[in-house]
Amino acid sequence: MAGYTLKRILLLFPTLFGVVTVTFFLMYVIPGDPALALAGERYDQQTLDNIRKELGLDQPVIVQYFKYLGRLARFDLGRSFTTGRAVSDSIRERFPKTVILALSAMLLAVTGGVLAGILGAWGRFPWLGRPLMGLSLVGVSIPVFWLGLILIYIFSIKLSLLPPSGYGGGSVRYLILPAVTLSFASMATIARVTRSGFLEAGNEDFVRTARAKGLGESAIVGKHLFRNALIPVVTIVGTDFGSYLSGAVLTESIFGWPGLGRYVVQAVLKRDFPVIQGSVLFMAVIFVLVNLVVDISYGFIDPRVRLKEKD
């Protein structure tokens, strides 16, 4: 297991190096001169030249690339072209807010999803299954931005129950709508996967044996089924959480949430190279790390996976 983990960690480096390099050169392929975006509506050649020099854009691309790698080696992500602020400062300020939103959305998704999945699969409430699964189907299919708008319309404009946007200094009231919006699709997927996991596991021999032995339903659910149904849930949690952490652009824009997603989109639109490079790298690191944790955690939940990885 330790060897496998180590190997996976080593494999992260070529991936990240690839991401850095692709991002860097992609920036230079995109038309749209960042100096031009900073020059305003009324400028002359001299102004452009001064700005280019100030930003270091007057050097050959390959020199810029190696300088950038040099700075990265010192953990320096540079300063934003547009705001002049250190990229690491911005990420440090925004990432916690992204984490808060991602964590609460994931928490909602897992509790709601697993609960709905179990209720849907459990024989005790047969009438619950269909509506729950119908709801979860809508949940997977509804576009995030549309859902967000409808929630704002209902809960903020019509009912005046919750604030429509903002971070509100961390107040929970501000978190509810964006977290629910973001969690919806994951919750629905988790509900579906949990349900089918339970239904399948219910047919497996060891559960039938347990049932035949006269074990109570709740004991069966708790002891035998849970573990089996958990693995696909972990997969979904992993991938979704990874992408939540790299910022949920749509949710953030609709609810004015000051997270990472909007930061990078703004940067792309403004050709803010240091910000794009810095945040893409940061997101990639988060994404691969979360995936790594998920992959490793399989081994703890299900010994069979551990065996499979050996071949």
Partner: peptide, 22 residues
């Protein structure tokens, strides 16, 4: 598989804007 990893780790939106610009 490394290429696939890079694709996964790369924000899709960025790639899209890049292509749309070119």
């Amino acid at each position: 598989m490394r290429l696939a990893d890079i694709t996964f780790a790369f924000p899709a939106l960025l790639l899209l804007i890049a292509v749309m610009a070119v």
